[in-house]
């Protein structure tokens, strides 16, 4: 066929036999490398051909539509990716045992319990010969306080042993991490337990209020401020400053703009003050003028009623006093 002439042969001749590890799909060419790029390309092609030849010689299987080769176990040991982990530092007990020559004796995991006649775990849950599960305890003759709870005492002693062991375990870990275990009660804040509102500082209350205000679906955007309320301090925005070495002329222009704003404000205040100083006279005059020339507001119905009510009252008073006078004369 035509096609065969176009492609290089599948049979490859090598001066030095390459190392082929089909398990890893790996081929290592041991021939010295030359700097000719064309030759390198050729070699890469030939080596790939060699590897595929080797794969084709393997046992084959048909999985659905695909032909699959069964790879043998790899022979080449690939180098390790990560460094070998450091051996664990011996614990304090292990050091002590080594110094004293104490050998570890293993006990059986199960122990025969005489009471029940069963094999039970040596340690842990449902262990045999559990001293804390005794139904009766003989009070020792030399007991200092025979009335105390001896059952309780055993449970406490067990708890203490467990706690001590835990502490030693933590100390060993701390030693391995080159830190120390803190003594005394934990000073870490309890999670989920807030500060009592009465004990909060003014600032803490402030921040809490700010946080509460922003805790709406729209992050507090539409939250109205209460009268006299200060704006939120911690908005999460970072301060941003102009560059130090920018254009000074621009900076001064901005300063002048701000200064103009200040001047405008100042004038307003002065006018107000002037009005205040000249206040009582001018405003009185204004009122009088309004009384004379200004448009009178329409009289409200209630006002009319009130006036009538006062008129009636005065009338009735007059009549009453007139009657009273007569009476007095009589």
């Amino acid at each position: 066929m035509d096609l065969i002439g176009h492609f290089p042969s599948t049979e490859v001749q090598k001066d030095v036999d390459p190392m082929v590890d089909v398990g890893n799909l790996l081929l290592i060419d041991r021939q010295p490398v030359t700097s000719d790029s064309d030759e390198l390309k050729d070699r890469a092609r030939n080596n790939t051909q060699l590897l595929l030849n080797a794969i084709w010689q393997l046992e084959r299987q048909q999985v659905e539509d695909a032909v699959v080769a069964i790879l043998p176990a790899p022979t080449y040991r690939l180098p390790r990716e990560k460094i070998i982990p450091q051996p664990r530092q011996p614990t304090k007990w292990e050091l002590y045992a080594k110094a004293k020559g104490i050998k570890k004796r293993t006990k059986d995991k199960k122990k025969f319990d005489d009471l029940t006649g069963e094999w039970k775990p040596t340690y842990g849950y449902r262990r045999g010969n559990d001293s804390t599960k005794d139904w009766v305890i003989e009070i020792p003759q030399n007991a200092a306080d025979p009335m105390k709870d001896f059952f309780e005492e055993r449970i406490e002693a067990k708890k203490e042993r467990v706690a001590k062991n835990e502490m030693q375990r933590l100390k060993n870990i701390a030693k391995q991490l080159n830190s120390t275990v803190k003594k005394g009660e934990s000073t870490d804040k309890l999670i989920g337990v807030g500060v009592n509102p009465m004990e909060k500082t003014k600032q803490q209350v402030r921040f809490a209020a700010d946080r509460a205000r922003a805790a709406t679906a729209s992050a507090g955007k539409f939250q109205e401020t209460i009268k006299g309320e200060k704006p939120n301090v911690k908005t999460g925005k970072k301060r941003k400053f102009e560059p130090n070495e920018g254009k000074i002329t621009e900076e001064n222009k901005r300063a002048l703009q701000i200064f103009d704003k200040i001047k405008a404000k100042k004038i307003k205040i002065i006018e107000e003050k002037a009005a205040e100083i000249a206040g009582p006279n001018s405003s009185d005059e204004g009122k009088k003028e309004r009384g004379k020339k200004g448009k009178k507001p329409a009289r409200m119905k209630s006002e009319v009623h009130r006036q009538q009510w006062f008129k009636n009252k005065i009338k009735s008073k007059k009549s009453a006093s007139a009657r009273g006078g007569r009476k007095g004369k009589k």
């Binding site: 400053f241 102009e242 300063a255 200064f259 200040i262």
Partner: peptide, 12 residues
């Protein structure tokens, strides 16, 4: 650093 707008307002 240059003054911020608020700072400039206060100083001026």
């Amino acid at each position: 650093r240059p003054l911020t707008e608020e700072e400039t307002e206060k100083v001026l």
